[in-house]
Amino acid sequence: MSTQATVHQTKWWSGGKSPFNLEYGKLMMWYFLMSDAFTFGAFLISYGSIRFSQNFWPDPNVVFNAFPGMGHANLPLAFVSVMTFILIISSVTMVLAVHAGHKQDKAGVIKWMFWTIVGGLAFLGCQAWEWHHLITGEHAVLVKDATGGAYIDMVGQTMGGNPWGKLVHDNTAVLNALNDTATSKHTLISLAHEFPTDQAKGLSHEALEKMNNSQLAGMVDTARAHIREKGPIAFGGYFYGITGFHGFHVFSGVIINLVMLIMTQKNVFHNKGHYLMIEKAGLYWHFVDLVWVFVFLCFYLI
């Protein structure tokens, strides 16, 4: 066995063979993925660097707690775990497509590539919903103005604003901000709906609409109201930047897989006698799943 191993070892470097026993395209795909790993790594490390430079960072369980169709229910990490499982399963179907390719099984390749594409599209759909929910969400935030006063604004998670700062425990500050002229009627009505005083509980939307701002301020239960300060602005840029870059990889992966599916259908690989292109597309697709492991880790878990 050991002599055989030595013979085996030297044979790769004696000429006429590929020393890595890989065809060019697949090897280059590996090196591309390695460089892409550094690109993603640089983004995530930059995010980590900024996060370590802050005294406060939003708790992901607070930020990512929504689920489609569940309204305002507090379900931390539920939706993102669905997204994670979608990617894991689409990785498995890709493995099966590559395996079918090894066996020259055209029908098998088509079947499993199809499911891989479905998984990719499902993931993109989930991400679209999540982004939309975060951007259009309205969260009451205590905003300090230049003169030292403060008002309350409804803010979504965008590139320029982060509504997930520290909880405001100071009820007097909240009450003052509610009565500040800069606090809009829309904000007051939303707050009166969400955190009504006993007096406001039975009131209809129309009844609230008729009140003036200072009356509305009295309808908000300041003791129960969840009002936060603004959080670190960098959160939005990093979150949308990195998950967007990953989403772009998923998107291009879906396009690549679609092209592979069409080429398989048209017998291109069958006529060539090998399905190596499926393997290369597979490497890229698994890499997308691999990156998600770390995006999931850095943004949602820790």
Binding site: L22, H286, L290, V293, L301, I302
Partner: peptide
Amino acid sequence: IIILSLAKAFYIVSIFMHLGDEIRNM
């Protein structure tokens, strides 16, 4: 959690991407 994520990365690269089956030098 970080160590578990690294374990996941290892399984994806080594089994799904078949890196574990390649030649050691590669």
